[in-house]
Amino acid sequence: MPEIEIPEITASYYLILAALLFTIGAVGLLLRRNTLVMFMCIELMLNAANLTFVTFAKELDDIGGQVIVFFTLVVAAAEVAVGLAIIVAIFRRRPDVTADDINLLKG
């Protein structure tokens, strides 16, 4: 049986994974038109940033990286609360929540 070399997981693995997740979130934000799914993509990007913070907290032996995650979490919660309220308010005026239909301010 051939011996499989198991790589040691360094900080770079986590950082590359966080970069991939951030990119997927950004691409999703550009691709999708459903405002709810766009919000989920923003959550993905915030989570990727959190993973970076925690990775650097471990790498640099600094508790500050983990504390910052809590503030990111608060911003995410506030953003979801206000954003979903805006979506509900828009939904009252028009029957669907596609971003293309919200073009009253178009120049």
Partner: peptide, 22 residues
């Protein structure tokens, strides 16, 4: 990554509260 508290908060706040809100 040895961030125990963050891991639990992730489940409690994100996985329950925010996804349920969605």
């Amino acid at each position: 990554l040895e961030a125990d508290l963050v891991a639990i908060i992730q489940i409690v706040v994100y996985a329950s509260a925010i996804v349920v809100l969605f």
